[in-house]
């Protein structure tokens, strides 16, 4: 039996669209496999300590909140990059991905530094963009994943480490280019917000296997798979 330790960064500031429920349900699934889990959410602007954690999560937040926390995040750039390079599991949703690029703009037009792990740049538009997406994840091209973007920014630059081959829907940039998200070592980033892990059994299983290794056991995903199949069928109906 394993106790998985998850660090939830900026839980107070990056908290839109029920996204943290990915972690709530991940915890339920870990327990379903007979393992245990602990989630730590440090206070705002407390020093970031990554040692001892199996997984780090940052959610999607208001654009001004993202700008406000970025300096604090970037001041830990060295340890964050080192942890990701060493294979720590990270899940970053929505605009939190901007923190990992070269830089990004905020609603007031100011430019903010990222940690520079990826060479993209975040561009704030102050306009709401919403879109569905279905795509094939790079960890298993036989699977299809559903995501929903609700964002006011996009990423500019070449997507070197895409997570999804998009079948239909949004990409990282301002226009669709067939690629979405980031999968680099065990870092996962997507513009998909809300219950991405909850609604996509293949993605949840992939993360569970990474976290649990030999302690992984199969869970019952019947309801989730049926629900996802219905979603995918609706896309097909539309095309026909």
């Amino acid at each position: 039996m394993k106790t998985v330790k998850i660090l939830h960064l900026y839980s107070q500031a990056m908290d839109l669209y029920g996204d943290y429920n990915n972690i709530t349900v991940l915890c339920q699934r870990i327990k379903e496999t007979g393992n245990d889990v602990e989630v730590t959410a440090p206070g705002l602007y407390e020093p970031i300590e990554l040692d001892g954690y199996d997984m780090v999560y940052i959610g999607h937040g208001k654009a001004r909140n993202l700008a406000a926390i970025s300096e604090h995040f970037v001041s830990h750039a060295d340890i964050i990059k080192e942890a990701i390079e060493n294979g720590q599991v990270w899940y970053a949703s929505g605009n939190s991905r901007e923190l990992f690029g070269e830089s990004f703009t905020s609603p007031d037009g100011k430019e903010h530094e990222g940690i520079g792990l990826f060479d993209y740049r975040g561009v704030e538009t102050n306009q709401v963009f919403v879109c569905d997406m279905i795509g094939r994840p790079d960890y298993d091209k036989d699977e299809i994943v559903y995501g929903f973007a609700n964002r006011t920014a996009y990423l500019e630059g070449k997507n070197k480490y895409p997570l999804f081959d998009v079948i239909t829907g949004f990409s990282d940039g301002s226009a669709p280019n067939g690629l979405e998200g980031t999968h680099y070592k065990n870092f996962f980033g997507t513009w998909g917000i809300g219950p991405v892990l909850v609604r996509n059994p293949s993605f949840m299983k992939h993360i569970l296997k990474l976290l649990l290794g030999d302690d992984y056991k199969e869970c019952d995903f019947t309801l989730e798979q049926n629900a996802l199949d219905l979603v995918i069928a609706e896309f097909k109906d539309k095309k026909d």
Binding site: Y17, G18, D19, V130, C131, D132, Y146, G194, P195, E234
Partner: peptide, 16 residues
């Protein structure tokens, strides 16, 4: 139901 106009299949708001 699906979210208005473009028939989005999003239910993220239920998680709020």
């Amino acid at each position: 139901n699906n979210v208005i106009y473009l028939d989005y299949k999003d239910v993220s708001w239920l998680y709020d």
